[in-house]
Write a protein that binds this DNA or RNA. Structure first.
Lengths: 261, 261
DNA sequence: AGATATTTGTTCGTATGTATT
DNA sequence: TAATACATACGAACAAATATC
């Protein structure tokens, strides 16, 4: 709808003499193109291997590599059996995050980097969500809070509570109609869940933050129910500022302990 | 530890008969794992096809599909010839954006969505860049402005100027040390370049915006040179607010003209 | 600059696995 | 259960690209 599915660099110009590009990639791009031109939607089936082999005058292996490429890009899903073949699919958020994670793997992403973004985006997404959330949504938020509204009994429960705290924000983001913003916010949350440093941090007991966090989130729900955008924004901004402070402090603590040993 | 490794209660007992996952994906993941375990860095070479075939007791086609998967994920690059094979590679920003674009393809992303993010992120990245930019950077910014500091002669030049205006922000983002923020900001810029609606908008003449844009950018450079974070933030915020306003107005105009026809 | 060796890229034929009917 | 239709996997051979001498 919005913009075109993009081809990899080099897909534009075709030098007639030498085949610059591999046959596999040519076919992958060609299939991608027909998907766009025919306006195929998720669930629609592409021609089967045999037909594609004939259509592009390529062998099975080459066609399969092309389909594999599309599969990894999250554009198709391949099913065996009668009536099987390649079916158009929407890339899952999970896969998008995984791929983006590969890009950021090499770069060094710090907690400060993540919170620099969260501090501005979480308030934004909360206000956006406020305009679309319904009773079921509020119930989901309250159910999530219930997971961590009490002292954890063991390390496992403490871990689960930390994850649930992030899930709270994930649920909020679900109700925004800005797909771009929602994805970004949820990706930041996933980074916090995955970063090795955070694993160490989240394992620490932090009695203060938990209760203050709950207070913020209860206030946030109230403000959302009241439809008070300014208040929602302010509450979330303060919540993020405090969370960042706490995370950075714990990060330093974890680092120091590591040095002492 | 004296006790045996136990299976989880619900863990999948390996059915010896049927393979849950495709061999290709198993091999791709196995290779990915060894890449991490061995701490391979860009430029390092993986075993060649022959060796991988022996190592995983798989056929050439299967191994090739696995490598294709890694290639699409931007993790390796494959070279032919003596000493060739799969080499570890960092995913390019270009590919990361392309893949993320595939995810957002299905979702409807509006100009308003993009500017909701730009309004908060561009000021942020400008302040961040201010702390690391050098004389060469300032020169690049001024060179970019030079592309659009005069009336365009034809449609082509007008188009080039619009792209250069976005490039200005791209250069700014380059000097931020927050990889996450920089990527996000540059991705938004790419969306503006690619969105079909924007193509129509950017083709329109807009004499006012160009000059005001240049004024903002000159002021921005001055504020960055002075190291005035507050001012940098304010200038960029105002610039984005105005740009959004203009874009939305033109979007409506383009839409109306489309309806008239 | 050209020949050669090495390694990926592609093809074809065949057999097996899997889901539908 | 059996037949069918499709993807999945194997193996051998050939083609194309590229580094090295």
């Amino acid at each position: 709808m919005s913009h075109e599915i993009t081809s990899e660099p080099g897909s534009v110009v075709s030098k007639p003499k030498s085949r610059l590009r591999k046959r596999t990639d040519e076919i992958a791009d060609a299939i991608k193109l027909t998907m766009i031109q025919h306006g195929l939607e998720p669930g629609d089936r592409l021609p089967q291997e045999k037909e594609l082999m004939a259509q592009y005058a390529a062998s099975k292996g080459t066609v399969r590599e092309a389909l594999k490429s599309l599969e990894v890009q999250g554009l198709v899903r391949i099913r065996t059996g009668p009536g099987g073949g390649a079916f158009v699919e929407r890339m899952s958020e999970r896969r998008a995050m995984s791929l983006l994670g590969n890009y950021l793997f090499a770069k060094k992403v710090t907690i400060a980097d993540i919170y620099a973004l969260r501090k501005v985006l979480e308030p934004l997404v909360a206000v956006s969500a406020m305009r679309h959330i319904d009773d079921a949504g509020f119930r989901r938020l309250e159910d999530t809070i219930a997971i961590y509204d009490h002292e954890p009994n063991d390390a496992q429960e403490r871990w689960d509570q930390r994850m649930a705290e992030l899930d709270f924000h994930s649920v909020v983001a679900e109700y925004s109609d800005n797909a771009l913003l929602a994805f970004q916010v949820r990706f930041l949350q996933r980074l916090l869940k995955d970063l090795a440093v955070c694993h160490d941090i989240y394992r620490q007991p932090q009695p203060v933050l938990r209760q203050r966090g709950i207070a913020f989130q209860r206030d946030l729900i109230d403000a959302m129910r009241a439809g008070d955008a300014t208040k929602v924004n302010a509450i979330m901004a303060e919540h993020m500022a405090l969370a960042e402070q706490q995370m950075l402090a714990l990060e330093a603590e974890v680092a120091n302990r590591f040095i002492e040993v």
